[in-house]
Amino acid sequence: MNAAQRQPAEAKFEPLLQFEMEMGTFLSDWHHCDQLSNFMARMISHNRTDPVRHSNFFSSALNELLEVSFRGGSPEGRIGCSVFRQGPKERVRLSFPCSPTQRRFFGEAVARTHKGDAYARYLDAISTDLAPSREIVLLDLAINFDAEIRLEEDDPPSISIIVDLPLEGIVS
Protein backbone atom coordinates (compact mmCIF):
# COMPACT_ATOMS: atom_id res chain seq x y z
CA MET A 1 0.00 0.00 0.00
CA ASN A 2 1.41 3.39 -0.85
CA ALA A 3 1.24 6.59 1.14
CA ALA A 4 -1.67 8.03 -0.86
CA GLN A 5 -3.81 4.99 -0.18
CA ARG A 6 -3.01 5.13 3.52
CA GLN A 7 -4.00 8.74 3.90
CA PRO A 8 -7.78 8.40 4.52
CA ALA A 9 -7.30 5.92 7.36
CA GLU A 10 -4.90 8.26 9.13
CA ALA A 11 -6.63 11.50 8.23
CA LYS A 12 -7.70 12.08 11.83
CA PHE A 13 -4.31 11.20 13.27
CA GLU A 14 -1.92 14.09 13.68
CA PRO A 15 1.71 13.26 12.82
CA LEU A 16 4.05 13.79 15.76
CA LEU A 17 7.46 12.34 15.00
CA GLN A 18 9.18 9.96 12.67
CA PHE A 19 12.57 8.45 12.07
CA GLU A 20 14.13 6.47 9.28
CA MET A 21 17.46 4.71 9.12
CA GLU A 22 19.31 2.04 7.19
CA MET A 23 18.25 -1.33 8.49
CA GLY A 24 21.89 -2.45 8.53
CA THR A 25 22.74 0.44 10.83
CA PHE A 26 19.77 -0.30 13.07
CA LEU A 27 20.77 -3.95 13.34
CA SER A 28 24.35 -3.07 14.22
CA ASP A 29 23.55 -2.43 17.87
CA TRP A 30 20.83 -3.99 20.06
CA HIS A 31 20.76 -0.88 22.22
CA HIS A 32 19.25 1.11 19.36
CA CYS A 33 15.87 -0.35 20.41
CA ASP A 34 16.24 1.03 23.92
CA GLN A 35 17.69 4.35 22.81
CA LEU A 36 15.12 5.05 20.12
CA SER A 37 12.15 4.00 22.23
CA ASN A 38 13.24 6.19 25.14
CA PHE A 39 13.97 9.18 22.93
CA MET A 40 10.74 8.99 20.95
CA ALA A 41 8.69 8.34 24.08
CA ARG A 42 10.10 11.40 25.80
CA MET A 43 9.51 13.59 22.75
CA ILE A 44 5.92 12.62 22.08
CA SER A 45 4.85 12.48 25.74
CA HIS A 46 5.89 16.00 26.75
CA ASN A 47 2.37 17.40 26.39
CA ARG A 48 0.47 14.44 27.77
CA THR A 49 -1.29 14.82 31.13
CA ASP A 50 1.46 12.92 32.96
CA PRO A 51 4.48 13.13 30.65
CA VAL A 52 6.84 11.05 32.79
CA ARG A 53 4.55 8.08 33.23
CA HIS A 54 3.21 8.28 29.67
CA SER A 55 6.76 8.24 28.40
CA ASN A 56 7.58 5.21 30.55
CA PHE A 57 4.55 3.30 29.26
CA PHE A 58 5.08 4.31 25.64
CA SER A 59 8.76 3.42 25.75
CA SER A 60 7.86 -0.06 26.99
CA ALA A 61 5.51 -0.67 24.09
CA LEU A 62 7.70 0.88 21.39
CA ASN A 63 10.77 -0.98 22.59
CA GLU A 64 8.97 -4.30 22.19
CA LEU A 65 7.99 -3.36 18.64
CA LEU A 66 11.52 -2.30 17.77
CA GLU A 67 12.86 -5.53 19.26
CA VAL A 68 10.41 -7.45 17.03
CA SER A 69 11.80 -5.70 13.96
CA PHE A 70 15.35 -6.23 15.20
CA ARG A 71 14.81 -9.96 15.54
CA GLY A 72 12.68 -10.44 12.41
CA GLY A 73 14.02 -7.85 9.99
CA SER A 74 16.39 -8.18 7.04
CA PRO A 75 19.53 -6.04 6.76
CA GLU A 76 18.75 -4.60 3.32
CA GLY A 77 16.50 -1.56 3.06
CA ARG A 78 15.35 0.98 5.58
CA ILE A 79 13.43 0.93 8.82
CA GLY A 80 10.92 3.70 9.46
CA CYS A 81 8.90 4.53 12.50
CA SER A 82 6.20 7.19 12.65
CA VAL A 83 4.07 8.23 15.60
CA PHE A 84 0.67 9.89 15.20
CA ARG A 85 -1.90 11.08 17.71
CA GLN A 86 -5.66 11.21 17.85
CA GLY A 87 -7.13 12.26 21.20
CA PRO A 88 -6.00 9.85 23.92
CA LYS A 89 -4.44 7.45 21.43
CA GLU A 90 -1.03 7.22 19.77
CA ARG A 91 -0.54 5.30 16.55
CA VAL A 92 2.83 3.75 15.78
CA ARG A 93 3.60 2.74 12.21
CA LEU A 94 6.72 0.62 12.07
CA SER A 95 7.96 -0.37 8.61
CA PHE A 96 10.92 -2.62 7.98
CA PRO A 97 12.19 -5.10 5.42
CA CYS A 98 11.74 -8.80 6.14
CA SER A 99 11.70 -12.12 4.32
CA PRO A 100 8.52 -13.67 2.81
CA THR A 101 8.56 -16.23 5.63
CA GLN A 102 8.61 -13.46 8.20
CA ARG A 103 5.79 -11.64 6.40
CA ARG A 104 3.60 -14.73 6.67
CA PHE A 105 4.58 -15.16 10.30
CA PHE A 106 3.68 -11.59 11.18
CA GLY A 107 0.36 -11.90 9.36
CA GLU A 108 -0.59 -14.91 11.43
CA ALA A 109 0.71 -13.45 14.70
CA VAL A 110 -1.22 -10.21 14.27
CA ALA A 111 -4.39 -12.13 13.41
CA ARG A 112 -4.10 -14.08 16.66
CA THR A 113 -4.15 -10.90 18.73
CA HIS A 114 -7.75 -10.39 17.59
CA LYS A 115 -8.98 -13.85 18.50
CA GLY A 116 -11.05 -14.64 21.56
CA ASP A 117 -8.43 -16.97 22.99
CA ALA A 118 -5.67 -14.33 22.95
CA TYR A 119 -5.45 -14.10 26.73
CA ALA A 120 -5.42 -17.88 27.18
CA ARG A 121 -2.64 -18.13 24.58
CA TYR A 122 -0.70 -15.41 26.38
CA LEU A 123 -0.95 -17.15 29.76
CA ASP A 124 -0.06 -20.47 28.19
CA ALA A 125 3.03 -18.97 26.59
CA ILE A 126 4.25 -17.42 29.86
CA SER A 127 3.58 -20.69 31.60
CA THR A 128 5.17 -23.13 29.17
CA ASP A 129 7.41 -21.51 26.54
CA LEU A 130 11.12 -21.53 27.17
CA ALA A 131 11.58 -18.08 25.66
CA PRO A 132 9.16 -15.40 24.47
CA SER A 133 8.25 -15.65 20.80
CA ARG A 134 7.52 -12.60 18.69
CA GLU A 135 3.89 -13.71 18.68
CA ILE A 136 3.82 -13.38 22.46
CA VAL A 137 5.30 -9.92 22.24
CA LEU A 138 2.37 -8.83 20.08
CA LEU A 139 -0.07 -10.50 22.49
CA ASP A 140 1.67 -8.65 25.32
CA LEU A 141 0.98 -5.35 23.56
CA ALA A 142 -2.66 -6.26 22.99
CA ILE A 143 -3.23 -7.43 26.58
CA ASN A 144 -1.02 -5.23 28.75
CA PHE A 145 -1.17 -2.04 26.69
CA ASP A 146 -4.72 -2.42 25.27
CA ALA A 147 -3.16 -2.12 21.81
CA GLU A 148 -5.02 -2.64 18.56
CA ILE A 149 -2.62 -4.14 16.05
CA ARG A 150 -2.89 -4.57 12.30
CA LEU A 151 -0.60 -5.19 9.43
CA GLU A 152 -0.14 -3.46 6.12
CA GLU A 153 1.74 -5.27 3.42
CA ASP A 154 3.88 -2.68 1.70
CA ASP A 155 5.76 -3.41 -1.47
CA PRO A 156 8.02 -6.40 -0.74
CA PRO A 157 10.22 -6.82 1.07
CA SER A 158 8.79 -4.26 3.50
CA ILE A 159 6.04 -4.74 6.01
CA SER A 160 4.27 -2.23 8.24
CA ILE A 161 2.92 -2.97 11.69
CA ILE A 162 0.37 -0.42 12.86
CA VAL A 163 -0.26 -0.30 16.58
CA ASP A 164 -2.81 1.97 18.26
CA LEU A 165 -1.97 2.59 21.92
CA PRO A 166 -4.59 4.24 24.18
CA LEU A 167 -2.02 4.95 26.87
CA GLU A 168 -3.32 8.35 27.97
CA GLY A 169 -6.40 6.64 29.38
CA ILE A 170 -4.35 3.97 31.14
CA VAL A 171 -1.81 6.37 32.63
CA SER A 172 -4.27 9.00 33.80
Binding site: N56, S59, S60, E64, E67, I126, L130, A131, P132
Partner: peptide
Protein backbone atom coordinates in the same frame (compact mmCIF):
# COMPACT_ATOMS: atom_id res chain seq x y z
CA UNK B 1 11.84 -1.51 37.92
CA UNK B 2 11.56 1.24 35.30
CA UNK B 3 11.68 -1.02 32.24
CA UNK B 4 11.78 -4.74 31.55
CA UNK B 5 11.42 -6.31 28.12
CA UNK B 6 9.60 -9.56 27.39
CA UNK B 7 12.85 -11.50 27.24
CA UNK B 8 13.64 -10.62 30.85
CA UNK B 9 10.04 -10.87 32.07
CA UNK B 10 9.74 -14.33 30.58
CA UNK B 11 13.05 -15.48 32.09
CA UNK B 12 12.25 -14.33 35.63
CA UNK B 13 8.65 -15.57 35.34
CA UNK B 14 9.81 -19.01 34.31
CA UNK B 15 11.96 -19.29 37.39
CA UNK B 16 9.15 -18.36 39.76
CA UNK B 17 6.57 -20.50 37.96
Amino acid sequence: LAQMNNTAFHAFSRVVL
